[in-house]
């Protein structure tokens, strides 16, 4: 093996080691955020770190360690799959958390959903009162 190749090898090894350690630290950051943050929405903010950036760093480290080009598309597919599924589940959890009032309103800087929810509740109330009126008319 010529010396140049071993230098390149060392550089790739170092870069992938840094990626592995930083990717693991993302998981630790998520755990610390889960323990320290006050309510569900801010905990969700912390929980996304290992799911997207952490997974990207670890998959990049795998690609660097395997030293071949054909693995990169496979790893990209795995990462894109995670990118597609994580926002949907986060949206569902956040929506359920808003509806069941698991949030501290004083921590929100703006609440764009509140007007929509009020309007939907108002129209549902109108609907039910109109139904009652028409029912009463039939009974009389």
């Amino acid at each position: 093996m010529n010396p140049e190749a071993s230098v390149v090898d060392n550089v790739i090894d170092t870069v992938s080691a840094v990626f592995l350690v930083v990717g693991a630290l993302m998981s630790l950051a998520a755990a610390v955020g889960l323990l320290r943050f006050p309510d569900l929405l801010s905990r969700m903010h912390a929980a996304t770190k290992p799911q997207v950036l952490g997974l990207f760093l670890l998959l990049a480290a795998i690609g660097l360690q395997l030293r071949s080009w054909w693995v990169w598309p496979v790893l990209l597919v795995a990462w894109i799959f995670q990118l597609l599924t994580v926002p949907i589940s986060a949206h569902m959890v956040g929506r359920a958390g808003y509806r069941t009032k698991h949030l501290h309103r004083e921590l929100l800087s703006s609440d764009e959903l509140e007007a929509v929810v009020q309007k939907a509740a108002q129209s549902a109330r109108d609907e039910s009162s109109r139904d009652e009126a028409s029912d009463g008319g039939r009974r009389d």
Partner: peptide
Amino acid sequence: SLLDRVLASDVLLAILGA
């Protein structure tokens, strides 16, 4: 709450994947 537990188990799953 239940949603906190769901979120934390999601993080545990991400740690397993890591």
